[in-house]
Protein backbone atom coordinates (compact mmCIF):
# COMPACT_ATOMS: atom_id res chain seq x y z
CA UNK A 1 0.00 0.00 0.00
CA UNK A 2 2.89 2.36 0.80
CA UNK A 3 4.11 2.27 -2.81
CA UNK A 4 0.59 3.30 -3.87
CA UNK A 5 0.53 6.18 -1.40
CA UNK A 6 3.93 7.28 -2.62
CA UNK A 7 2.71 7.11 -6.23
CA UNK A 8 -0.25 9.29 -5.27
CA UNK A 9 2.06 11.80 -3.60
CA UNK A 10 4.27 11.75 -6.70
CA UNK A 11 1.28 12.35 -8.95
CA UNK A 12 -0.04 15.17 -6.75
CA UNK A 13 3.38 16.86 -6.83
CA UNK A 14 3.48 16.45 -10.63
CA UNK A 15 0.01 17.94 -11.09
CA UNK A 16 0.96 20.87 -8.86
CA UNK A 17 4.09 21.50 -10.93
CA UNK A 18 2.06 21.29 -14.17
CA UNK A 19 -0.48 23.79 -12.85
CA UNK A 20 2.22 26.29 -11.83
CA UNK A 21 3.93 25.92 -15.21
CA UNK A 22 0.67 26.36 -17.12
CA UNK A 23 -0.17 29.52 -15.17
CA UNK A 24 3.16 31.01 -16.31
CA UNK A 25 2.57 29.67 -19.84
CA UNK A 26 -0.80 31.42 -20.02
CA UNK A 27 0.42 34.60 -18.32
CA UNK A 28 3.22 35.35 -20.80
CA UNK A 29 1.25 34.49 -23.97
CA UNK A 30 -2.44 35.20 -23.40
CA UNK A 31 -1.66 37.63 -20.58
CA UNK A 32 1.31 39.84 -21.42
CA UNK A 33 1.15 39.14 -25.16
CA UNK A 34 -2.57 39.78 -25.71
CA UNK A 35 -5.00 40.65 -22.91
CA UNK A 36 -2.74 42.63 -20.59
CA UNK A 37 -0.86 44.32 -23.44
CA UNK A 38 -2.62 47.71 -22.95
CA UNK A 39 -1.38 47.74 -19.32
CA UNK A 40 2.20 47.19 -20.44
CA UNK A 41 2.07 49.79 -23.21
CA UNK A 42 3.99 52.28 -21.06
CA UNK A 43 7.11 50.10 -21.08
CA UNK A 44 8.94 50.84 -24.32
CA UNK A 45 11.00 48.11 -25.99
CA UNK A 46 12.88 49.08 -29.17
CA UNK A 47 10.26 51.06 -31.10
CA UNK A 48 7.27 49.25 -29.61
CA UNK A 49 6.13 48.07 -26.18
CA UNK A 50 6.69 45.14 -23.83
CA UNK A 51 3.43 43.44 -24.86
CA UNK A 52 4.53 43.40 -28.51
CA UNK A 53 7.87 41.91 -27.46
CA UNK A 54 6.14 39.17 -25.44
CA UNK A 55 3.82 38.38 -28.35
CA UNK A 56 6.61 38.10 -30.91
CA UNK A 57 9.62 36.84 -28.90
CA UNK A 58 9.31 36.87 -25.12
CA UNK A 59 6.71 34.15 -24.81
CA UNK A 60 8.78 31.76 -26.97
CA UNK A 61 11.80 32.25 -24.70
CA UNK A 62 9.67 31.65 -21.58
CA UNK A 63 8.17 28.49 -23.17
CA UNK A 64 11.68 27.12 -23.65
CA UNK A 65 12.67 27.87 -20.07
CA UNK A 66 9.44 26.24 -18.81
CA UNK A 67 9.98 22.95 -20.66
CA UNK A 68 13.58 22.60 -19.50
CA UNK A 69 12.64 23.55 -15.94
CA UNK A 70 9.83 20.97 -15.91
CA UNK A 71 12.07 18.23 -17.33
CA UNK A 72 14.78 18.95 -14.75
CA UNK A 73 12.33 19.16 -11.84
CA UNK A 74 10.43 16.00 -12.83
CA UNK A 75 13.58 13.94 -13.27
CA UNK A 76 14.49 14.96 -9.71
CA UNK A 77 10.98 14.14 -8.51
CA UNK A 78 11.19 10.71 -10.19
CA UNK A 79 14.28 9.90 -8.13
CA UNK A 80 12.89 11.30 -4.86
CA UNK A 81 9.83 9.08 -5.15
CA UNK A 82 11.74 6.11 -6.46
CA UNK A 83 9.78 5.91 -9.71
CA UNK A 84 12.66 6.75 -12.08
CA UNK A 85 13.67 4.32 -14.78
CA UNK A 86 16.43 1.98 -13.61
Amino acid sequence: MSQNDDNNAYWAANVRLILISLVIWALVSFGFGIILRPMLSGIAVGGSDLGFWFAQQGSIIVFLALIFFYAWRMNKLDREHGVDEE
Binding site: I18, G33, F52, A55, Q56, S59, F63, I67, A71
Partner: peptide, 21 residues
Protein backbone atom coordinates in the same frame (compact mmCIF):
# COMPACT_ATOMS: atom_id res chain seq x y z
CA UNK B 1 1.94 42.85 -38.03
CA UNK B 2 1.08 42.30 -34.38
CA UNK B 3 -2.30 40.65 -35.03
CA UNK B 4 -0.62 37.60 -36.53
CA UNK B 5 1.62 37.04 -33.48
CA UNK B 6 -0.81 34.16 -32.78
CA UNK B 7 1.16 32.00 -35.22
CA UNK B 8 4.38 32.63 -33.28
CA UNK B 9 2.93 31.96 -29.83
CA UNK B 10 0.57 29.20 -30.95
CA UNK B 11 3.02 27.04 -32.85
CA UNK B 12 5.61 27.18 -30.05
CA UNK B 13 3.34 27.20 -26.98
CA UNK B 14 1.91 23.85 -28.03
CA UNK B 15 5.23 22.24 -27.16
CA UNK B 16 4.72 23.23 -23.52
CA UNK B 17 1.41 21.31 -23.53
CA UNK B 18 3.08 18.42 -25.30
CA UNK B 19 5.98 18.23 -22.83
CA UNK B 20 3.84 18.65 -19.70
CA UNK B 21 0.60 16.88 -20.53
Amino acid sequence: GYDNSSFLMGWTGGYVLLALL
